[in-house]
Design a protein around this nucleic acid. Structure first.
Lengths: 395, 395
DNA sequence: ATTGTTTGTCTAGTGAATGAACTAAGTGTA
DNA sequence: TACACTTAGTTCATTCACTAGACAAACAAT
């Protein structure tokens, strides 16, 4: 028999306190009276819990607010600067580290380009970045309360990195390495999952509860927000939707499968399509997404047509996803966002032709607006929340 | 701001009581001491809550159990017969209704064949079946505590039937009709979702928490158990995985999409394959799954080969599902189970060749053993739980 | 018979939320 | 200005569920 969480008054208090803190964080400035109203808690209860939160410096009293016909309320603020979190996004050829306050506002960021670094060299880079960020951190009661790291890898439930093909890593315990150095809680997440969460918290996904985030880079990764919560599979490996078969008679993928989606709809696929078409280019130039974007911007009709084809392939996979999850929103993020201008319309066209109409009714398709920070922001937010819920186990 | 559930002592009591009842239901016979141990609740708390449950006739005291070196414990039993639920499975050409006790034991069942009935005619049939079952129900303190109905249809969050293509229903409020007649809580669920839940509670899915249930009939439906709970999409339409594209250059499906999975891997697909091959048959015979099963049982090599092809097509879709959800278990249910003997091996073979190996490690593939009762049992269980959690809102 | 163990009940105590009284500080009106 | 009325926030006695620990009952082992 599983040891279920029992409910006693201590848990009750913890949860109510956490609920209040959460409400304040999301809706401040807000008065005690409003909180009592919106949470349904008694005025006295709110008062005493709020005072504890003030003692813990997690919230602040600001001046009086506007009267609504009686005594003026004392407005409460979330103390964003009570602590800071660090979010790190490890890419194939870069490492991005950001320092955010508890609200997710970026207070500093560092980006370094990397190439073919070993695991040890990468951790060294990360240490340097974190140290630099910490050095610039303003004074605060709690300091750095957590570090979150997003990796393009399969990550298991113990947050160990099992397999990161593009980084050539296998079975690495990054969490342990970092926790031992900084003695702070560290969260390791899959890059697409982190990106999905980042979009949910800070990006175009704020208003939605069932989101499919498509991280389109060299490969394709997918992060799922189901019922407002990040979904991880059995072992935390889920979302490898890039390797779904969309053409059972298609070419072999290096995953061992045939006709995988990412062979048709990723950055890699586009590069291949352009190469086959044969773009005239100076010998020293390298065929890259940036170069293709430039051609498209110059109005190259063939390039724009090829991007249209990419959109059609994207639509096939997205359609499968819609039929599976019936999400409220699809977010396209990561590198492919650069092509938004030329992807958007053909993508919508192809989708209209395909998915079950009942499923399309309330569906939104959006492109990320967080540029390349979705993942870093996502993991930073994870760490912040981990701190704010104060040892409160997940329900 | 959403009105969040606050936590006070009443909620605490309700949840602890519900937790205890659940433990007793799952592990009886069990003593108060064991319950205190496994839940972490205090002995006294367990004692008083258990006594309330006894007063409510939801559990029973049986005789003393075996001593483990001291006073002999009083064993507690779940009172399965405190009430009954009715589960109805509406198929395209049948209606199955079962009467179960609170534990899900079938105490009676009625099956009628139907064909091309209107919505009104079907509800009449259902009324008759329910009345017949109620007439045979043993006396019990609570009587019929709920009715659950599984429909091969898209069902929205208000449990209204939006679209049932195979039944030719559209926008029907079956829940209201039945609730008005019987004045009991009624639950309407999608057939595949109900089947998934049935397997989770009573079938081969008991031990698993992330399950993909594939309902292979004329079409293909999919029910998802994620983190131990049934997942429904945004509007409760999810799981239309039958219409995922597995061949982007394939034929048009009546959903408007191309190369849908169910065109390749359903009962419908098999019939078509056999028809094209051209089986010699007497003119009055109808080509059906039952007929094909008979041929396979007689060892017809071509039929067995065609079933093997079906298995390969099934594997492609299943592979996509694995990469998406990384489930612990795949359950194949509904009509295709009949072909288990000839499907099983080629299916496993094809899967081995395909899915990402990291995802296959702990994956189980099983065929349903509940025959055609998964869905009816599932909805009955829903109703029973709804009653037992006693107005406890979902977390 | 004695000792120790396990089961279950009982009682006093604790802590958290509640309701209501109360203080504080404003608005609106004559 | 005086007064009535509102709204905001605090205080305090009350309620209620869980807990700890004492206790009794029932049993095993020596």
């Amino acid at each position: 028999m599983k040891i279920n969480q029992t409910f006693n008054q201590h848990v009750v208090k913890k949860r109510n306190k956490s609920l209040l803190l959460h409400c304040i964080k999301e809706t401040f400035p807000v008065s005690r009276a409003e909180l009592a109203n919106s949470t349904g808690l008694n005025k006295g209860t709110v008062s005493s819990l709020v005072n504890e939160l003030i003692d813990e410096q997690l919230i602040l009293e600001s001046g009086p607010g506007l009267s609504s016909g009686g005594r003026r309320p004392v407005m409460l603020l979330f103390n964003q600067s009570a602590g800071y979190t660090i979010g790190v996004d490890i890419g194939v050829n870069y490492v991005l580290a950001i320092l955010t306050d508890l609200q997710g506002n970026i207070s500093n960021e560092k980006l370094v380009e990397t190439l073919n670094l070993s695991f040890e060299e990468t951790t060294e880079k990360i240490f340097t970045l974190i140290d630099e960020l910490i050095a610039t951190m303003p004074g605060s009661p709690y300091g750095v309360v957590g570090i979150g790291i997003g990796v393009p890898a399969a990550v298991n439930n113990e947050e160990e990195i099992i397999l990161a093909p593009n980084l050539k890593w296998k079975n690495k315990n990054l969490k342990k390495v970092i926790e031992e150095k900084y003695k702070i809680p560290v969260k390791i997440k899959n890059e697409a999952n982190a990106g999905a969460y980042g979009e949910k918290k800070f990006g175009v996904g704020k208003e939605f509860d069932n989101i499919v985030y498509i991280s389109g880079g060299i490969g394709i990764g997918v992060g799922l927000i189901l019922n407002g919560k990040l979904y991880k599979g059995n072992n935390g490996f889920s979302g490898e939707l890039g390797h779904m078969t969309i053409n059972m008679y298609g070419p072999l993928c290096n995953c061992g499968n045939k006709g995988c989606w990412e062979l048709y709809a990723s950055e890699k696929a586009l590069l291949e399509m352009v190469r086959q078409y044969g773009i005239p280019m100076k010998s020293e130039q390298e065929l890259s997404l940036e170069f293709i974007t430039k051609l498209a911007r110059n109005g190259d009709p063939k390039i724009i047509e090829l991007i249209g084809q990419l959109a059609e392939h994207l639509a096939i996979g997205i359609n499968n996803i819609i039929n599976t999850f019936n999400p409220e929103q699809i977010i396209i993020g990561n590198r492919l966002v650069t092509l938004q201008n030329w992807l958007d319309e053909p993508l919508r066209e192809s989708m209209k032709k395909n998915a079950l109409t009942t499923h399309q009714k309330d569906l939104q398709i959006h492109f990320s607006k967080l540029e390349s920070r979705s993942a870093a922001l996502g993991v930073a937010a994870f760490s912040a929340e981990n701190f704010l819920t104060m040892n409160l186990e997940e329900a």
